[in-house]
Computed example of a mutant assay.
Amino acid sequence: MYLVTFRLAPGEYDTEFHELNDAIQAAAEDTEGYLGKQTWHAPDSEEVLVIYYWKSLDALELFGADADHKRAKQRWTEWYDAYEVTVTEVVERYGNGFGDDSSPLV
């Protein structure tokens, strides 16, 4: 499994941003191998972390080829003050106490 961490400092969002963002989320959900996402907002700043869960790199690459996703990546300066993407392979997961529905992991 792979995690894509999208760290962002939000800027100004307009109608076009929201429409494109919704289209990108729909494309992710329609991609075989997409497992879900979780979002965190930093308590002391406007920084946001969005963690996307993917079954494989192939699934992630398929999503990366989506036309709306490519267009949004080209226009990031219109909507974000900063962003960073980190792709991580999960080699182990363990813990206790969050319950079966605590994450979109399969």
Rank of each mutant, 00 (worst) to 15 (best):
R7Y: 11
E92V: 03
T86E: 15
R93Y: 04
K73Q: 13
A59T: 02
T88H: 06
M1C: 07
L105N: 12
P43W: 10
Q25M: 11
D58Y: 00
K70G: 09
T88P: 00
A9C: 10
G97T: 08
T77N: 13
E16T: 15
N96E: 15
P104N: 09
G97S: 08
T39I: 11
L60H: 03
W76H: 10
S45I: 03
T5L: 14
R75C: 12
D101S: 14
A26G: 11
L105P: 00
L105A: 15
S56I: 02
A28D: 07
S102P: 04
Y34I: 02
L8F: 09
T39W: 01
E78D: 14
L8R: 12
D14G: 04
V90C: 11
L60M: 11
P10N: 08
A42S: 09
E61P: 01
H41K: 13
K70W: 00
T86L: 14
P43H: 11
V91I: 14
I51S: 05
E61F: 05
D81R: 12
E92C: 01
P10Y: 04
I24C: 01
Y34D: 00
T39A: 08
D68G: 01
A42Y: 04
T5Q: 14
V90P: 00
E19N: 13
L35V: 01
D101C: 01
A9W: 10
L20T: 15
Y2T: 05
E89I: 08
E46N: 13
L105K: 04
D14W: 10
H18Y: 15
F6A: 05
Y53T: 01
G95Y: 06
D68M: 02
D44H: 10
P10F: 06
I24A: 02
A59Y: 01
T86R: 13
D81S: 13
Q38C: 03
E61Y: 05
D44N: 14
L60N: 04
D66C: 02
Q38I: 01
F6D: 07
E16C: 09
V50C: 05
E19Y: 10
G99Q: 06
A26W: 03
K73V: 04
V91S: 06
Y53D: 04
Y13E: 13
Y80T: 06
L20I: 15
D30G: 15
Y2M: 05
A82Y: 05
R71M: 11
R71I: 03
W79A: 07
Y52L: 08
W40R: 05
V90E: 15
F63L: 04
Y52R: 03
E46I: 01
R75F: 06
A82F: 06
D100Q: 12
Y94F: 15
E12F: 09
L57E: 15
T5I: 10
L49H: 12
A65K: 11
G33Q: 03
S56N: 03
Q38E: 13
L62H: 11
V4P: 09
A67V: 11
R93D: 14
Y80D: 00
Y83H: 14
G36R: 02
L49E: 12
V48I: 12
D100Y: 09
K73D: 03
A42D: 11
Y34C: 02
Q74G: 15
V50L: 07
A82G: 12
